[in-house]
Design a protein around this nucleic acid. Structure first.
Lengths: 218, 218
DNA sequence: ATCCTACCCGACCGGTCGGTCGGGCGATAG
DNA sequence: CTATCGCCCGACCGACCGGTCGGGTAGGAT
């Protein structure tokens, strides 16, 4: 018998932790709340996880592993880099849309460097390795293909949200985002590059007709 | 005498709160920590603010007011909508780059709906009104101008970060983001529109030469 | 029957949380 | 002089925090 119950206690704790941490963040969630929602005693949490921080890392790691698994087929499929990248983004969007908590968790993990204590748990190391794997494969894909494409419409609301989102996100990323980018986020070069990029996105977004042809009659 | 000291206690509390809340979030900051950093007693915090939530709202509101003030000249300047919007984004980038805490605070305010207790403080209402003002004026500007523009280079790293950032941000926005967008974030139409938008951004980003001509010789 | 292991629990620990209370201090008004 | 007011403080509160402890229970191996 592989599983003791319909769903193991460990998985149930991770499920609850994923939902709770996504909604209120690391500091905002109490272990009593998690235990109660998982229909377990708080002591049992410490039987499965060594600390609250370890539980948090395990939750994040499971999310990243699930994400990697969802992206892998698209990454390994044959075809042009553009088609493969679009497939990856399709898969990314699908998995984010399916699990509402995933993106919140990722965003927190990316821009909340200070949630966890400074010491690095073994769980956090495994987590970072998985994240690095995902990012490097996507970056390699982008770096490989330089193609031209045709435009697609974006509504004004989508445009403003994307611009604000991308910009706020950029500067909100902190040390973690700087690590992704490979240079300090607030350096003069980075600010200048960001500015040019946003201007380009604006010009790009504004070339799109505002009415959406894809469904949505309202 | 308008000011009692070089900087009033109230402003000092707001300064400390801004930095701390940006770094660790609402639940992650204790009032003792704030009081100590502001060189005041914790009791004094409650003399100036009715509760921790009220203090948090006042911090956010001050940030938004400062942001609105920075954007106003660019918004009111004459010129084409494209030039004005670029000026607004310039100002936005400048203010975000200058105050590192601002963007983190904004991101939290946008995607952490559950940080604050459910009841709406009077402070939070004023805050939401200011946010709505800023967003509507930017959206009106975008909606007004549909122009074509020339491209600017984006590096692969910038591209992947923007794509991930914009996408994660989109799905991380939750109820607050759905309010910005005017429709549910996870509806089939929204997912489809988002997918098309991201594809367009990919094609757009990939048409850019990867070497940057604008300064930056390294 | 005995032992071991995995799993789970209630009770409890020291410490910290947001928030309250009564009073002290200095300036201004009468 | 006293009264008042804005500002500030130390001491304190009940509730809750993350984490520990000793014990209980079921099952598989011997």
């Amino acid at each position: 018998m592989a599983e003791k119950q319909v769903v193991s206690s460990r998985e149930k704790i991770l499920d609850v932790g994923e939902a709770r941490f996504a909604r209120r963040g690391f500091a905002g969630v109490g272990l009593r709340e998690v235990a109660e929602a998982a229909e377990l005693s708080k002591s049992t949490l410490f039987h499965h996880f060594t600390s609250k921080a370890a539980l948090y890392c395990c939750v994040l790691h499971r999310v990243l592993l699930r994400l990697e698994e969802s992206l892998r087929p698209a990454l390994e499929r044959s075809g042009t880099p553009l088609a493969r990248l679009e497939g990856v983004l399709d898969a990314l969007i699908d998995v984010l849309a399916e699990h509402g908590a995933t993106s919140r968790l990722l965003l927190r993990a990316i821009f909340e460097d200070d949630d966890l204590p400074e010491e690095s748990l073994p769980e956090s190391d495994a987590l970072n390795a998985t994240l690095a794997r995902i990012l490097s494969s996507m970056e390699a894909l982008i770096r490989k293909g330089v193609k031209e494409g045709q435009f697609r419409p974006i509504s004004a609301k989508h445009t403003v949200q994307t611009l604000i989102g991308a910009t706020v996100y950029h500067f909100a990323s902190g040390d973690f985002g700087a690590q992704l980018l490979g240079q300090p986020l607030f350096s003069a070069e980075a600010v200048k590059a960001r500015r040019e990029e946003v201007k380009s996105l604006v010009r790009f977004g504004l070339t799109m007709p505002e009415s959406a042809p894809a469904g949505e009659p309202s």
